[in-house]
Design a protein around this nucleic acid. Structure first.
Lengths: 198, 198
DNA sequence: CAGCTGACAGATGTTGAAATCTGTCAGCTG
DNA sequence: CAGCTGACAGATTTCAACATCTGTCAGCTG
C-alpha cells in the first residue's frame, strides 16, 4: 500500500476527490499530485495537459451513466414501449440523484461539461444510439412507426423532446414538485406519437 | 425635438441602445442618462433601481415575441394542427432571427434573461397559455386528444418538448444545418401524439 | 534505465488601493 | 411646484503589483 504504482485510474479518482473538495476553479494539478503523494511532474507523465486530465474525468463520469442505461436497452424481454419509458425515467432519475446527493460535485461537473463539449457530444451520440436501438426494436415488433420512416431522426426527436429532463442546465427544476407528472405527460405524448396506427 | 418629455419608453429605448453598445457588464445608468442628455437622477425618477430598469427592458423584449405569436393563436380560420406547427415554427424563427441578426445584442439579452428569471417565468406562462388555447381548440374540433385528459399538462408537454428550439441556451445549435429537419421531425411526432385515434 | 523529482519560464489568478457607479435628496429652474 | 440637477456616501469595479500555477526537462534514484 505504501507505494502503489501510479495509474491513470488512480489519478482520475484523486482528481475527482480534489475537484469535490476545492471546486473546479481552485483544483490544481499540484493539488492532485499532493493528494497522491507524488510530484506534479508525475501527473503530466500520464496526462499531457490539465485540460486532458479534466476531459478524462468528465468522460469517466458520463460513461458510468451510459453503461447503466445499456442494460435497459439490451433487455429484449420487455416491449420497446416499456423500455423507452424506462430508459428515459432511468436517465432522469440517475441525473437527479447525482444533482441531489452532492450538489457541490454536480455543480463542478456542470462546469466540466461546459468546457468539454466534445466529450458531451460523443456522450449524446451514444445515448441517441441507444434510443435508436429501442425504436428499431419497436418498429421491428410492429409497435412503432418512425417519423418520416427515419428511425435515427425519430430517436433524435425523442431525445430532444426530453432534453429538459436530462440537460444539467435544468437541474434546478428537477426538485420541483410535480416534475415527475410533467415527465410522465411528455412520455405519454411521445409514446402515443410513436405508436403504429391500426 | 429639443426637449421631449422624459418617458419610461424613451428611457427603455435608450437603455437598449446603451446595452447594445457597451454590453450588459459595462452599461451603466450614467451612460443611459448621458444618451438621453439628462442627469442620472432623472432616470431614477422613473425606475427605482438599475435592476428594475433592466427588468423592464427584458420584459419589453419578451413581450414583442408574445404579441407576434398571439396573432397565430387568434386565427380560428386555421386548424389547430396547422396553428400548433405554425406557432412553434414562428417562435423558433423569431428567436433564431434575433440571435443571427445581432449576436452581440442577443448575448446581452441572454445575460438579462438569466438575471430576471421572474420575468422569464411569466413569459413562459403566457406562451404555455397560448398553446393551451390552440390545444383546446383542437380538442373542441375533435382533432386532438389531450394526454391524461388534461389540456394544461398537454400544452406544457408540447412546450417542454420543443425547448431546444426556443431556449436561448441552445442558440448556438440554431444555425446548424439540418436543424429545421430536426424540428419538423419533432413536431410531426408531437402532432401525431396529439391526434385523436379513430 | 523507467519512472520520478523539483527548479524554472511564462501564463494565470489573487489582492487591495484607487476609480467609478448606484441610489438619495436638498435645492434649483422653468 | 413638478420635474430635474448634481454633490454625496456606500457599494462595486478596475488595475497593477504580487503570488501561484502550468508545463518542461535535465538529472536523480531504486
Amino acid at each position: 500500500m505504501a507505494t502503489e504504482t501510479l495509474t491513470a485510474e488512480r489519478i482520475l479518482a484523486a482528481t475527482e476527490d480534489v475537484l469535490r473538495l476545492y471546486g473546479p476553479a481552485k483544483a490544481t494539478v499540484v493539488d492532485v499530485a499532493r493528494a497522491l503523494g507524488v510530484s506534479h511532474g508525475s501527473v503530466y507523465r500520464h496526462f499531457r495537459t490539465k485540460a486532458a486530465l479534466r476531459e478524462a474525468v468528465t468522460k469517466r463520469w458520463l460513461d458510468r451513466t451510459t453503461r447503466e442505461l445499456s442494460r435497459i436497452v439490451a433487455d429484449r424481454s420487455r416491449s420497446a414501449e416499456d423500455r423507452l419509458a424506462s430508459w428515459n425515467v432511468a436517465l432522469f432519475t440517475a441525473k437527479r440523484k447525482k444533482a441531489g446527493a452532492d450538489p457541490q460535485l454536480f455543480a463542478t461537473y456542470e462546469v466540466l461539461l461546459r468546457e468539454n463539449s466534445g466529450v458531451v457530444d460523443e456522450h449524446i451520440t451514444e445515448l441517441v444510439g441507444q434510443l435508436v436501438q429501442i425504436v428499431q426494436d419497436g418498429v421491428a415488433a410492429g409497435d412503432f412507426t418512425p417519423v418520416e420512416g427515419n428511425v435515427e431522426a425519430t430517436a433524435r426527436a425523442v431525445f430532444d423532446a426530453t432534453i429538459r429532463f436530462h440537460d444539467p442546465v435544468y437541474a434546478a427544476e428537477w426538485s420541483k414538485p410535480g416534475i415527475e407528472a410533467e415527465m410522465d405527460a411528455l412520455l405519454a405524448l411521445l409514446v402515443n406519437g410513436l405508436k403504429r396506427r391500426p
